[in-house]
């Protein structure tokens, strides 16, 4: 058992209790989330900055159906993640794995819908450097922000599957599942800002 494990299991005779009463791994995830929020915030500020500066920013989205479905899927996957974590905490391993995999499936579905949407837009002539509706920066910012988010979703799905399998095999415990869950909720949380800023404000009337 290493020192790190000591902190993870709250074995506090040899060391000071952790600052915020959470294991180091969870703390690291929170720190990652803080850093990542700064990254997304920088991207969104950059997008907002450019959008405000352009009086004729394109508003090409006709339908909200796809993005609404994607939002519901992602928020629901957060909920299923919570069920998985709860089951793991209660010791019901099979149920926990099942819910985790359902969450991962939700992530995959989200990613597929997203890619389908991307392909649709690419079909309409939207590229990183141009689009048929106006400011070239529309495509650039849309693809880079949603792309960054999609990258996070993909990473999250892989993490969920890996952690889920290893949890099943006994290598990881319910805490690890919970920490992966933290990340997954964060991906969901970022989407909550991406939807209104990138989609809804660019809705054509």
């Amino acid at each position: 058992m290493s020192h790190a494990d000591l902190t993870l299991e709250g074995y506090s005779a040899a060391i000071m209790p952790p600052a915020f009463s959470i294991p180091a791994k969870k703390m690291a995830m929170w720190l990652f989330i803080i850093a990542d929020s700064a990254t997304f915030a920088a991207c969104l500020v950059a997008y907002g900055y450019l959008r405000v500066a352009d009086a004729h920013w394109p508003r090409p989205f006709h339908s909200i159906t796809n993005v609404a479905i994607m939002t519901v899927i992602l928020v629901t996957s957060s909920l299923t993640m919570l069920f998985g974590i709860d089951a793991a905490k209660a010791g019901d391993k099979a149920k926990a794995v099942r819910w985790t995999m359902i969450t991962a499936a939700g992530g995959i579905l989200f990613a597929l819908l997203h890619i389908r949407e991307w392909l649709g837009l690419i079909d309409e002539g939207m590229r990183l450097f141009q689009n048929p509706w106006g400011s070239a920066l529309f495509g650039a910012s849309f693809f880079s922000i949603t792309g960054l988010h999609l990258l996070h979703v993909t990473g999250g799905v892989i993490a969920l599957i890996v952690v889920g399998i290893r949890y099943k095999g006994g290598r990881y415990n319910s805490d690890d599942l919970e920490i992966t869950g933290l990340y997954w909720h964060f991906v969901d949380l970022v989407w909550m800002f991406v939807v209104p800023l990138v989609y809804l404000l660019n809705l054509s009337h």
């Binding site: 850093a35 990542d36 700064a38 990254t39 920088a42 991207c43 950059a46 450019l50 990183l128 450097f129 070239a136 920066l137 650039a140 910012s141 880079s144 960054l148």
Partner: peptide
């Protein structure tokens, strides 16, 4: 701080290789 520089650098790279104009 580094979490902000990283996307800025990536946007700069995109300006170069993908023809964006951030």
């Amino acid at each position: 701080a580094f979490a902000v520089l990283m996307p800025a650098c990536i946007l700069l790279i995109l300006d170069h290789v993908a023809g964006t104009s951030f």
